[in-house]
Amino acid sequence: MPKKLAIIASKGTLDGAYPPFLLASTAAALGFEAKIFFTFYGLQLLNKELSLKVSPLGNPAMPMPVPVPSIVQVLPGLQGFATWMMKRKLKKKGVASVEQLREICIESGVELIACQMTVDLFDFKHEDFVDGISSGGAATFLEFASEADITLYI
């Protein structure tokens, strides 16, 4: 019986997208059965068209090339600059894109589950999501998570 990995993805930012997809694709490569439950802002990661951003505001751990005082972080355009910097660094280091990692997960058999309550709450349309995902509620995910060897909230 394969090991099981259950992940709850609740963040819809560029930096929040990498952990669930990296961990799930790695787990699948190691022979785990893996499922990611996308809820609240994490549902953004299932959209066909991704427009993910990273914000230095409220994230003191974000490595910036120069220290940025907190007051400066609210200036218009800084979020776009931080996102551009992060994408540039990821590309320079040869890190796969979020879209590539998501596709690897789907191809590897990782089940991507859209939280139906959140879909209804935010009026998402299933046709806006990538193909190959499923839909379910908390009970559906908890049934799997209760038997998982590893459960992560990201």
Results as ranks from 00 to 15, higher is better:
Met1Tyr: 05
Pro2Arg: 14
Lys3Val: 01
Lys3Ile: 03
Ala6Ser: 13
Ile8Gly: 02
Ala9Asp: 04
Ser10Leu: 07
Lys11Pro: 00
Thr13Tyr: 08
Asp15Arg: 10
Asp15Pro: 08
Ala17Arg: 09
Phe21Lys: 03
Leu23Glu: 01
Ala24Ile: 04
Thr26Tyr: 05
Ala28Gln: 06
Ala28Tyr: 05
Phe32His: 14
Phe32Gly: 11
Ala34Pro: 00
Lys35Tyr: 03
Phe37Thr: 03
Phe38Arg: 02
Thr39Asn: 11
Gly42Lys: 06
Gly42His: 10
Leu45Pro: 06
Glu49Ala: 14
Ser51Pro: 05
Leu52Tyr: 06
Leu52Asn: 07
Lys53Met: 15
Val54Ile: 11
Val54Pro: 00
Ser55Thr: 13
Pro56Thr: 02
Leu57Thr: 10
Gly58Pro: 07
Asn59Val: 15
Asn59Phe: 14
Pro60Asp: 11
Met62Asn: 02
Val66Gln: 13
Val66Glu: 13
Pro67Ser: 03
Val68Gly: 07
Ile71Leu: 14
Phe81Thr: 08
Ala82Leu: 07
Thr83Met: 10
Trp84Phe: 09
Trp84Ser: 11
Met85Gln: 13
Lys89Leu: 08
Leu90Asp: 10
Leu90Thr: 12
Lys92Trp: 13
Lys92Ala: 15
Lys92Val: 13
Ala96Glu: 04
Ala96His: 02
Ser97Gln: 10
Arg102Met: 09
Ile104Phe: 07
Ile104Cys: 05
Ile104Met: 12
Cys105Glu: 00
Gly109Ile: 06
Val110Glu: 01
Glu111Asn: 11
Leu112Val: 04
Cys115Gly: 00
Met117Tyr: 08
Asp120Thr: 12
Asp120Cys: 05
Phe122Pro: 03
Phe124Cys: 09
Lys125Val: 05
Glu127Cys: 04
Glu127Ser: 12
Glu127Pro: 02
Asp128Met: 12
Asp131Cys: 05
Gly137Asp: 07
Ala138Lys: 01
Ala139Ile: 14
Ala139Asp: 09
Leu142His: 02
Phe144Val: 04
Ala145Phe: 01
Glu147Tyr: 05
Tyr153Cys: 05
Ile154Val: 12
